[in-house]
């Protein structure tokens, strides 16, 4: 199962740090990288981890008016950090896929009015993996929007943990933030989820939700009527639950490869 196929499926240039202008870029084999997306630029960035490394940190600074789509694929079980600072009117969309027992910390600093941050992630932990996923969204100024949605599945004897923080500073008025954590456990697995809100401004719209085990029973019925056994239907539904994130990944082309990677992992559920 090589994560390379995700990269190979798109036409991307390797990035060793520095400025990104338009186009599709890949960061791989790098432990510590800082990247800047220039003002007004539109770029796609794929961040892959490296076998045998000990940690990975990617820092991204997006200057005013830039648009950035990030696909972050984590297949190794070490520490990963993704740090994103956003100026005014920056739009960042991140799709994150975690298929190993890794520690992943993502921080988004919304520092300019009109910034918009969207993160859709999924984690799948099997066997006896231990995962720890954190997403911190810091609204440092007002008039920004953030949407974080993370889905988690753990099976076997795995343990998954999700912590999400939405922090709204005192002067960050007219913030619009949402966070959602949805999870399913199978077998002897355990999932801890702790979505948190720390709010110091009042003219805000902020909500979060966390669910465990909420699956649509009607969908199971539908699949069974098409001849799929109850057990297979449930499995299919859970696969769909996680795959949904990938299907909506913002970088065209690598979606299929990511699906394959995901399916390989889901077969181990």
């Amino acid at each position: 199962m090589s994560v390379d196929r995700v990269v190979n499926s798109v036409d991307a240039r390797t990035l060793h740090g520095g400025d990104i202008s338009s186009g599709c870029w890949v960061i791989r084999d790098r432990a510590d990288v800082d990247v800047v997306v220039k003002s007004g630029e539109r770029a796609d960035l794929i961040v892959i981890d490296t076998a045998g490394a000990e940690c990975q940190r990617v820092g991204i600074k997006a200057l005013s008016g830039a648009t950035l789509n990030v696909v972050h694929v984590i297949t190794e079980s070490y520490d990963h950090k993704l740090d994103i600072s956003m100026s005014e009117h920056v739009e960042v969309s991140v799709t994150q896929l975690v298929v190993a027992g890794a520690k992943v910390n993502t921080k988004a600093h919304l520092q300019g009015a009109g910034a918009r941050f969207v993160l859709n992630g999924s984690f799948v932990h099997t066997d006896d993996e231990r995962g720890d996923v954190t997403v911190d969204v810091l609204h440092e100024v007002g008039d920004c929007v953030s949407r974080t949605a993370y889905r988690g599945v753990a099976s076997g004897k795995a343990q998954g943990r999700f912590s999400g923080l939405v922090y709204i500073a005192q002067d960050a008025q007219r913030t619009d933030a949402e966070q959602l954590s949805r999870n399913v456990t199978l077998g002897d697995a355990v999932i801890h989820t702790a979505p948190q809100m720390e709010i110091y401004a009042d003219d805000v719209r902020c909500s979060h939700g966390a669910t465990v085990g909420q699956m649509d029973a009607e969908a199971i019925m539908y699949m069974r009527q098409r001849g799929i056994s109850a057990a297979d239907a449930k499995r299919l539904q859970i696969q769909g639950f996680v795959a949904d994130t990938i299907l909506h990944a913002p970088i065209a082309g690598c979606g299929d490869a990511m699906m394959e990677l995901l399916m390989d992992k889901l077969d181990r559920l």
Binding site: N183, V184, T185, L186, G187, D188, A189, V190, I191, H192, T193, A194, P195, Q196, M197, E198, I199, Y200, D202, D203, V204, R205, C206, S207, H208, G209, A210, T211, V212, G213, Q214
Partner: peptide, 25 residues
């Protein structure tokens, strides 16, 4: 300030748990 720190710890596959929170003025 208003802060919400819910924690859900689940170790059973058949559990159905749901948490929602909103903050407004």
């Amino acid at each position: 300030g208003a802060h919400t720190f819910p924690v859900i710890k689940n170790a059973n596959p058949s559990a159905v748990l749901e948490h929602e929170a909103t903050t407004s003025k």
